[in-house]
Computed example of a mutant assay.
Amino acid sequence: MERKENIIEVKNVSMKFNLMEEKVDTIKDYVLKIIKGQMLYNEFSALTDVSFQVKKGDILGIIGFNGAGKSTMLKILAGVLKPTAGEVVVRGSVAPLIEVGAGFDPELTARENIFLNGAILGYRREFLKEHFQEIIDFAELNQFVDVPVKNFSSGMYARLGFSIATIVQPDILIVDEVLSVGDYRFQEKCEERIKTMILRGTTVLLVSHDLSLVKNICNRVVFLQQGKLKDYGDTDIICKHYEEECNVVR
């Protein structure tokens, strides 16, 4: 039996943020407080000493209650944030879909944002031209190609973002709650595309509060609680622990 290599290694990762104690209304006030040493912060630990590995071809679900650190972890894995402590090793190309409309300019049209967002993801302009119609067709936005995306609903944002991010076959696809936006039929279409990518060897990291979705497509699950690794392992076992924890909280 072939032994799969680790495509992601999370080693003792911690993430802390400094939150301002008081609201500052202007840049001038902010600068003056910095100069005078009057800016006070509260330190917030979003993640504390978290470690796990992801094998090539895994479909990893990341679950937990609100504020558990799930989205922070995905942003670290996507390279958006640098951890305060610890190390993350990612082997392969990453297509992050971690926030609806991230990388879009609201003043630009869908057409223009395809090239902007695609460039951010590292796609060549020639590639985007070649696959432009495929992106629009999947997002079901043919009537809105030249409409500024500031006029889009959250569902339309999600459809366009998902279509751009998944037009290629990345080594790693990172998805954060995007499938919860939009109608049920489009969610099913997204699930089918993800399953196709999985069959072709893409490793998927998925944050979702939809436990049925996690059970349906994930083979491994990370359970975060208050920024710490509560549990990690087989999907059925970890989801059962999570459901038991939900019952305790209720």
Rank of each mutant, 00 (worst) to 15 (best):
I120H: 04
E99I: 11
N42I: 11
F104N: 10
C246W: 06
G67Q: 08
L40P: 00
N247F: 10
S14G: 12
R91A: 06
G69F: 08
P83I: 08
L74D: 10
V10A: 08
L206A: 00
D25F: 12
A46E: 08
G122I: 04
K33R: 15
I35L: 13
E243C: 04
S163I: 02
D236Y: 05
G227D: 07
I172D: 01
Y30A: 15
T196A: 15
T203W: 03
L81E: 11
E130S: 07
E126G: 07
I8D: 01
V214C: 04
K4N: 13
E188Y: 05
N6E: 15
S14T: 14
Q226V: 09
K228F: 00
T26H: 05
V89R: 13
S212D: 14
F127R: 02
D29K: 11
E21V: 04
D29I: 09
E245G: 05
K228A: 13
Q226S: 12
V89S: 13
F115M: 07
S51R: 10
V147L: 14
A46K: 08
L116R: 08
D25H: 14
M20H: 11
V207L: 04
L116Q: 11
F115L: 11
V181W: 01
I34C: 12
E99T: 10
L199Q: 15
N219A: 05
I63M: 04
I27W: 07
D58G: 11
S51V: 09
R3E: 15
H241P: 00
G64P: 06
M15C: 10
L121T: 14
V221G: 04
K16V: 12
E5D: 14
G161D: 04
Q225P: 00
E191D: 07
L206E: 06
I136W: 00
I174L: 11
I217E: 08
I27N: 09
I172T: 05
F44T: 14
L160Q: 13
S208G: 03
T84H: 08
T72K: 09
D183V: 06
T84W: 08
K150I: 02
A110D: 11
E130Y: 00
V249R: 15
I237E: 15
K129L: 12
V50L: 03
R250Y: 03
N66G: 07
I120A: 07
F52M: 04
N117L: 05
G233K: 02
G161K: 01
H131W: 04
